[in-house]
Design a protein around this nucleic acid. Structure first.
Lengths: 223, 223
DNA sequence: CCTCATTTCAAACGACCGTTTGAAATGTAC
DNA sequence: GTACATTTCAAACGGTCGTTTGAAATGAGG
């Protein structure tokens, strides 16, 4: 069998299992079993499990990130600052195009992203900020321009809140899909969730700042 | 040594390790080593690792949940529906009071909550909704009353988005604290994060609904 | 002090993990 | 068809895991 076929089969099996069970809880024996290759093939072709995880993520990142970067550059080249919802909408098209590369591609990638941020705490964050730091910087710059009332620290926190929203939703998307379908008779696909996410994120990021005194009065008013 | 002392030492060691490394990645040998008790003590006193995890969570849930339920009942007894920020502010006091029960109690509990939702997918959700379903129902009812423009399905999704925000932020709170302190010279304590969270969540939950057509036009405008 | 239940302890169990090994199989160029 | 490099394969390695075991230590009551 050609090298490429085996590597592909391993990557396909690994990404689906990683998305289902997480990185730490998926064993190489499960992966090679689903891929119908020998156990030693992973270490032969990728070197280690850690390298396999990176390869699985890279397959999507190397497609999504350049497209995002290009879109951000277009918006930054404008004369007037872009509105926040429009900045966030940049993510929609590149993410949905992953569906064409591979069936369920969008869902898989976002689930992997979620797993990567929650499973192996810190690794994925460093990996992305190291390899794609310029993309992230351009995005942050756009958000800052669209929200002139927020200082850099507030934006830092709110973007991480938003990352949490996306990552958690996607990591537990299967369970949420099931509940939504059972309780609310909803179509449960990734695109409709993204549609629901954007207004939530836009409103959260651009929310008015509340100062400590108001928080205290709120807490007391509720008691 | 008395039974209670040993159980307490195990619970203390387990909760700190669970918060740091997650449930799956924390071994009983690490726990019993930090607690300075014999390896077999966990299985003797708690039965299994799974039961230990539940015991660790229950120590906080049994304190927090009744207080939340009481606050929700007070708000539900009012004549007029409560404003959303006030509903969310209910969480502040009971959570911060965990700090008095135990140093770092609030942080530990919220980290454990985050770990529980991301590590052992689904288990914690079922456990909480089974034991404390009435509390959750009252909270959802309050949110529905405060947001009459949103249907039940939209609220379902937005509350899970919010759960993701909180859970992810707390699970990765150590890393975020470090970055915030290094890059923005900020005080990095749990209370200031909660302060930042509330306006974000309130705005996100109460955000205006955007319909598909608007989303598409947004995505096209950005390209 | 003796009795008996409770708790602690060292040791081992079987299972699964990621990785390595060296031979067998397969592919490739002459 | 022979020589050589690449890929596959079964088997084993050392290690960690949660759990169990049976004896030793400790506790409390008569």
């Amino acid at each position: 069998m050609s090298r490429i076929q085996t590597q592909q089969k391993i990557l396909d099996a690994a990404e689906s299992l990683f998305a289902e069970t997480g990185f730490n809880d998926t064993s190489l024996r499960q992966i090679t079993s689903r891929a119908e290759v020998n156990l030693a093939a992973v270490n032969y072709h990728f070197g280690s499990k850690k390298a396999l995880i990176q390869a699985v993520l890279q397959r999507y990142l190397k497609v999504v990130m350049p497209r995002l970067e290009h879109q951000f550059e277009v918006l930054l080249a404008r004369q007037k600052p872009t509105q926040l919802p429009e900045v966030l909408a940049v993510f929609v098209q590149p993410l949905l195009e992953l569906e064409q590369i591979k069936r369920q591609g969008t869902t898989l990638f976002l689930q992997l992203l979620g797993r990567g941020y929650t499973d192996v705490q810190g690794h994925l964050r460093k990996f992305i900020s190291h390899h794609y730091g310029s993309v992230l910087n351009k995005f942050v710059l756009l958000v800052q321009q669209s929200c002139p009332g927020l200082d850099a620290a507030e934006i830092f926190w709110r973007l991480h809140f938003s990352l949490g929203t996306v990552v958690f939703t996607m990591a537990s998307s299967e369970a949420l899909f099931d509940i939504a379908a059972a309780d609310y008779q909803q179509q449960a696909d990734i695109e409709s969730v993204i549609r629901r996410l954007l207004p939530y994120l836009a409103a959260g990021i651009a929310a008015p700042v509340i100062y400590p005194e108001q928080l205290n009065s709120m807490a007391q008013a509720a008691s």
